[in-house]
Design a protein around this nucleic acid. Structure first.
Length: 377
DNA sequence: CGTGGTATAAATGGCCATCA
DNA sequence: TGATGGCCATTTATACCACG
């Protein structure tokens, strides 16, 4: 059987349409260069490259995220472009998590496709499912900040990026260069200007993108770093309480990094249990301080987060994507109030229509609500 | 060598059938 | 029920070419 492609199909076999021809061309042009020239069946748009870039930086992304942050909110377009890139071998898709919808992550070819000189070379890695919620929350938080801060020249550097930078065996030279490339102020342009200094590990190597712990014997990696106004702000997304000694060690590391002029501020986006660990909680006899007060990173007593310029800021994590809202709330809710994604969405609709002032989780916790909801179907 | 018009490629968004 | 692939009509981007 002879093989035919695209417009060369023999008369009468399959009617050749532009769509079929383009598909045949897509099949014939796969790999890192796919979509860069005519006759490839599709053309890589700036939005496509942005999606590849985001997926590479954060390791994984949902199609809904892609739609929101790359394709002006049009899901249909995002799905189609993802399909093209998956067909070209640049992206891999996974639909193992119902609440996430389709998750996309870059292939080796996808990473090669957007490799830019001067930027860290990322390794290929299949994202593990167990950490997927955390990974997607990090991506969402970072993308939201990037979308808001892009106009003001904010840049976001992901954990994958700085792990690649700090892996280099060059005494921190490429990490330093990259810091300058993304706008970190490493030298004062005017006298007295605040300058960023790196931390140092126990070998004396400067660490621009990692936080040395235990006198530099170990390194801690923030979830991502925001570069703005020439300074570094570390962001931590914590949805599981760490053991006290581990969290303590991380906070000590950050405290040192802040004091030596490396990190300007740490933002903690956390679930209620972690928030309690960090800033304390109201007890029977007044406020019980958390780790931040104990370590002098916050004045004793209930925190006032309207005060600006604190070295550490804690705020409740707020998922935007409906699937992430679900997955996150399932960890916070007591077992009896958990439900399948499908059921949760039905309950959400009931909540929306109920006109209550309570937020969803609080509404669900009102005695009788769950029993009532379960009786509906 | 620039300009403007035309042909063609590709993007987009809507719709539908299928599938799990 | 949502994700998906197939298809179509319309819009937009790009390549090409003749002309001055």
């Amino acid at each position: 059987m002879p093989e035919f492609s695209g417009s060369e199909l023999p008369f009468g076999r399959v009617r050749s349409t532009p769509w079929r021809r383009a598909r045949a061309e897509r099949m014939a042009n796969q790999g890192p260069a796919a979509g860069t020239a005519k006759r490839h069946g599709w053309r890589r748009s700036p939005a496509d490259e942005q999606l590849l870039d985001f997926a590479a930086r954060f390791g994984a992304l949902t199609v809904r995220h892609a739609a929101k942050y790359c394709y002006r909110g049009v899901f249909e377009t995002a799905r189609r472009r993802v399909a093209f890139m998956a067909g070209a071998g640049l992206l891999e898709r996974s639909d193992n998590l119902a609440w996430a919808g389709t998750v996309v992550y870059p292939t080796m070819a996808g990473l090669t496709a957007i490799r830019t000189p001067g930027h860290p070379e990322l390794r290929f890695r299949v994202p593990g499912e167990e950490r997927m919620l955390h990974r997607l929350l990090v991506a969402e938080t970072a993308l939201a900040m990037l979308a808001r801060g892009a106009a003001r020249g904010f840049e976001v550097v992901s954990e994958r990026q700085f792990r690649a930078l700090e892996r280099a065996r060059d005494d921190g030279e490429s990490a330093h260069r990259y810091a300058e490339l993304v706008g970190v102020r490493t030298t004062a342009r005017t006298p007295g200007e605040q300058v960023v200094h790196p931390s140092f590990d126990d070998t004396g190597r400067p660490r621009w993108w990692a936080i040395p712990l235990d006198n530099g014997q170990a390194l801690h990696w923030p979830d991502f770093v925001v570069v703005g106004g020439g300074l570094l702000r570390a962001v931590e997304v914590e949805i599981t309480p760490k053991e006290r000694w581990r969290l303590h060690a991380v906070l000590r590391g950050y405290r040192t990094a802040i004091r030596c002029g490396h990190i300007d501020q740490v933002l903690w986006c956390v679930t209620p249990d972690v928030q309690m660990q960090l800033e304390g909680a109201r007890g029977p006899d007044g406020w019980i301080d958390g780790l931040l007060q104990e370590m002098g990173l916050l004045p004793p007593g209930p925190p006032d987060w309207t005060v600006k310029g604190r070295p550490m800021v804690v705020r409740p994590i707020a998922a935007v994507d409906e699937g992430l809202v679900y997955a996150l709330s399932q960890r916070v809710l007591v077992a009896s109030m958990r439900s399948s994604y499908r059921q949760w969405r039905q309950w959400r609709r009931v909540w929306e229509n109920s006109g209550t002032a309570l937020d969803f989780d609080a509404w669900l916790a009102v005695p009788g609500t769950v029993t009532h909801l379960k009786s509906l179907r």
